[in-house]
Simulated scan of single mutants.
Amino acid sequence: MILMPGKSYRGTLPPLTRHEEEVSDRLRQDVEAIAGAGEHNYIYYDNLLKTEAYLESRLTQAGYTVQRQEYLIGDRQFTNLEVEIPGEALGEEIIVIGAHYDSVVGSPGANDNGSGAAAVLALADYFAPTHPQKTLRFVEFVNEEPPFSWTPDMGSWVYAKRSRERNEKIVAMLSLETMGYYSDTPGSQTYPLGLLNNIYPITGNFIAFVGNFASGGLVRQVVKAFRTHTLFPSEGSILPNTVPGAGWSDHWSFWQEGYPGIMVTDTAMFRYPYYHSQEDTPAMVNYNHLARVVSGLEAVIMNLANID
């Protein structure tokens, strides 16, 4: 459950590379575009459509042909957005990198989950010119937040069900969820189970990789690749599905269909003081730290997709 390859980075963070500086600037622009207008969800449906249009435009600008998975809830249409880089030697094996773009009712959703949605865009930008051995898919999911969480109307479950119906071979799913808040204050990090306080750091300055037992191999592979290439604190955890928080994102949908999936997160409510509030604004996101994490995920995806 807790033993992970490599060691979490400790110490002063190095200066951003030029690439990370560019990623940081782009992440800021995207989060501000996603969350700057306020709530975007089934209540603020027009704003949700504006966010959808922005994401589709960004992916198109990166050179992709966007596939729209549309479905109805009542008389309203909701849409998952997907772009793909076909794999070469191992093209039947699919890696999904996804995040939800809706905000919870009552919040503009900058960190939850503008940070994740923007990270998907940044990774799609980075990998657009590459030639992976395995197929890469970048997906922006709708309707992760209540009242759709853990229901058949959750966008990622709609997507995962279709993948299963098509007999697609998804070998890894990375759910990018609430990734942009970090604190160097001791005691800033809490956990859903008291026992974990004695195992993991109590300072919320790390990125977490969380999976269930069936996804344990994927957690370890991802943590190893991240720690090998990235000077940023990281923790990995393999938890039962029933632990509060372990399945609180789109990777849960893939678990339901028998696919391995993990969540990449700053741990959300267990660290972020503005979780699901009106104060979850773009100003609360640490874009430099988020850029370091995105840079580390570039190395992770290169490892997963067999890119030299």
Rank of each mutant, 00 (worst) to 15 (best):
V96F: 14
I97R: 01
I97T: 12
G98I: 01
G98M: 01
A99S: 15
A99L: 08
A99C: 10
D102S: 12
S103D: 02
V104N: 07
V104M: 09
G106W: 02
S107I: 00
G109K: 10
G109S: 06
G109C: 06
D112H: 12
G114P: 05
S115C: 04
S115T: 09
A119F: 08
V120E: 01
V120F: 00
L121N: 04
L123D: 02
A124K: 09
A124V: 05
D125N: 01
Y126I: 05
F127S: 05
A128G: 08
A128S: 15
T130S: 15
H131E: 13
H131D: 09
K134Q: 14
T135Q: 01
R137S: 12
F138V: 03
F138E: 07
V139T: 10
V139C: 02
V139F: 01
V139S: 05
N143Y: 00
E144I: 08
E144V: 08
E145A: 07
P146W: 07
P146C: 01
P147T: 13
P147Q: 13
S149K: 06
W150M: 11
T151H: 11
P152W: 02
P152A: 02
P152C: 00
D153F: 13
S156G: 08
W157Q: 02
W157F: 15
V158M: 11
V158E: 04
Y159N: 09
R162V: 00
S163G: 11
S163L: 15
R164P: 00
R166W: 05
N167G: 12
E168W: 10
I170K: 00
A172Q: 06
M173H: 08
L174E: 04
E177N: 07
E177P: 04
E177Q: 06
T178A: 14
G180V: 06
Y182H: 02
S183L: 10
D184C: 04
G187E: 13
G187Y: 09
S188P: 07
T190M: 07
Y191Q: 07
Y191V: 09
P192K: 09
L195M: 12
L196S: 05
L196A: 04
N197W: 03
N197D: 12
Y200M: 04
T203H: 08
T203V: 14
T203D: 10
N205L: 03
N205F: 06
I207S: 14
